[in-house]
Design a binder for these strands. Structure first.
Lengths: 197, 197
DNA sequence: GGCACAAGCGGACGCGTTGTCCATTTATTC
DNA sequence: GAATAAATGGACAACGCGTCCGCTTGTGCC
């Protein structure tokens, strides 16, 4: 209980060489994820590319998924910020269906920009237990509740499912454009919230 | 071109011991998938449990996914038959929204009954390239087209996404009942086809 | 019934990935 | 610059994969 009040430096600050290596690792990993099938990147690959030993890598990250997640994190934070405090329709102020549609559109843009990282991050199929996923679910759930949709808890997971990276990647591979996907998701958002008409 | 007309026995019929082993393998695999995390079952496990060698296993199945798929196949065939030629609302005759809702309900029942197999079958995240998935997509696409939904190709994948085994398993783990999930999906089906009202 | 031959079998092998462990090196503090 | 703690990196054991090939067993024919 005391620790909470104690101070601002619970951990004694990162050592200079450690910080340098963290940067090297993230840098090398970003390159690897972008340059080949992100699901095939191994811990050894990253260690070699970063010029550090396996042990050093495992000290910080338990697996490749968590590295992709770390890289993804900053991009997701930007969107999360906009959802909480940005301008409508992404931020508060617009009707829930419109906000949901805007969220879909932003997520598709995010998938497009970082599909390699998202694929790498979901390699284990553990997306649903991620902190980020929890955020998205809470957001969608709140919008659904605001629109008086029944079973918002179930519906939130349902409406997030199409954003799974495999689904999106598969659609793109089959020739769909992000435009068409966005259009379909917008219609879904409006229909699900009863704003269809 | 001739082979098509040639005869009924392109392959010389399966040997007795081979058939016996196939049965042993499928039997043992079903037990394993049911009794532990299906994603953690290995080819070695199945070989040991079935009392056959690794080579024997690989002769027929390239990986655990295909074994789970083989087990799942007969269950899926039943539903596919009903969709094509069964009574409404599952079969032809009912309005598309109702048929989609009925399809959702049947799929949830199928997930409930064989969640272990479905999890085992999707272990690689290759669900979307499966023959079965192609069938579901074609079915949903046809219903959407019938309801004059725009972008039926995109929408079909979108509306199938919530049926991913991980999503369903995750919802059940979070305390949702199949009842509530069915109810939410029914509403989604009606909303997406414009039969909401 | 016995024989020849193809089909089927199974375990050993080589490979690549994982995660851990610890002797050594390096940064920080006084 | 000495003392201490943190960080490093590569060796190691365990594991799963997929293949290969000498041996066994079923099947069709005489």
């Amino acid at each position: 209980m005391d620790e909470l009040l104690a101070g601002k430096e619970p951990r004694p600050r990162e050592r200079a060489d450690a910080a340098r290596n963290r940067a090297k690792v993230l840098d090398a990993a970003a390159g690897l994820f972008a340059s080949r099938d992100p699901r095939a990147v191994t811990m050894d690959d990253i260690a070699k590319a970063a010029g550090v030993g396996r042990g050093t890598l495992y000290r910080r990250y338990p697996d490749t998924t968590s590295i992709a997640l770390a890289l993804l994190d900053e991009h997701e934070r930007g969107l999360q910020e906009k959802l909480l405090r940005g301008e409508p329709p992404l931020g508060p102020g617009a009707p829930p269906g419109e906000r949901l549609a805007a969220f879909y559109e932003a997520m598709v843009d995010l998938l497009d920009a970082h599909i390699d990282l998202v694929l790498g991050a979901e390699a284990g199929g553990e997306r649903l237990t991620t902190g980020a996923y929890g955020f998205w679910r809470a957001h969608v759930r709140a919008l659904l509740a605001e629109a008086n949709v029944p079973e918002p808890d179930v519906m939130a997971d349902v409406l997030l499912a199409p954003l799974a990276s495999e689904v999106y990647a598969h659609q793109r591979e089959r020739g769909q454009t992000s435009q068409r996907i966005k259009a379909a998701l917008r219609r879904l958002a409006l229909a699900a919230t009863g704003e269809g008409r």
